[in-house]
Amino acid sequence: MLQFVNFKKNYGSFAALTVDDLQIGQGLYWLKGVNGSGKSTLLKSVAGMLSFDGDVLLDGTISVKKDAVNYRRLVSFAEAEPLFPEFLTGREMINLFAKARGAAAGQEEEYIESMQMQSYVDRPIGSYSSGMNKKLSLLLAFLGKPKLILLDEPLITIDTASLLILYKWINERQEQDGTSFILSSHQALDRDILPNAGELLIENQTLTHIA
C-alpha cells in the first residue's frame, strides 16, 4: 500500500529520519516513538506537507512528488494540533474539504451527528475549544474516499467517549472501503479495541515494522 524509496528528512545538517526501503501493506498501523522521535515528521512527509529527499509511493505507482494531485486525493491527514482560520465556521471547512476531495453530498452528516458536533459546527472556529477543533480535524480527514488516512496523535485532547466513536469510524471505513490507517501515539496500543493493528516504530532516526 505504501512504499518508502530512499526516504531522507534532514533538519539543517541533522538527519532526522531515514527510511531506505520499506513497504507497508494494507491495514491499520499504530506508529510508536518517544517525544521528538519524528512521528509527526514522518506523517507530515507522507501527507505531502513536508519536503524530503527520496519518494513515497501509494499502491506502487502514485508518487507524492510526481503525481501530486492524485496522491493528495487519496491520502488525507489530521494534524496533532490543528490550526484553521478562526473566521471560518466548522461547516465552511467541511464544505471546503468535501469539495476538494470530491466527497459524496451529505457524507459529513453522519459524522457530525455521531461526534455530536451539531451544536457548534455552524459557529466560527475561533470560538472552539481545542477538543472541538480536534474533532473537526478528524472529521475532515474522513471526507471523500481516501485510501490512506493519517491521524497524528488522535488520542490527545478528545474525551474518552469521542475516542470510542473515532475507533468506530476507523473500523467502519476499514471494513467497508478497505481504507488503511496510520495512527501515531506515544501511548501503548489497546489490543482489545484494535485487535488487528500492525505496529510501526520510530527509533534511532529510522522507521521499522515491528508487528
Binding site: 501527507a47 505531502g48 506537507m49 501530486a68 494531485v69 492524485n70 496522491y71 493528495r72 486525493r73 491520502v75 488525507s76 491527514f77 494534524e79 490543528p82 490550526l83 484553521f84 482560520p85 478562526e86 474539504f97 476538494a100 476531495r101 480535524s137 475532515l140
Partner: peptide
C-alpha cells in the same frame, strides 16, 4: 505568514499548483 500558520492543511489537499 497566514498561509504557513492557518492554511497548512492546504498542502494536503488535491489542488494543482
Amino acid at each position: 505568514t497566514f498561509e504557513e500558520t492557518f492554511l497548512r492543511f492546504g498542502r494536503n489537499l488535491p489542488y494543482s499548483r
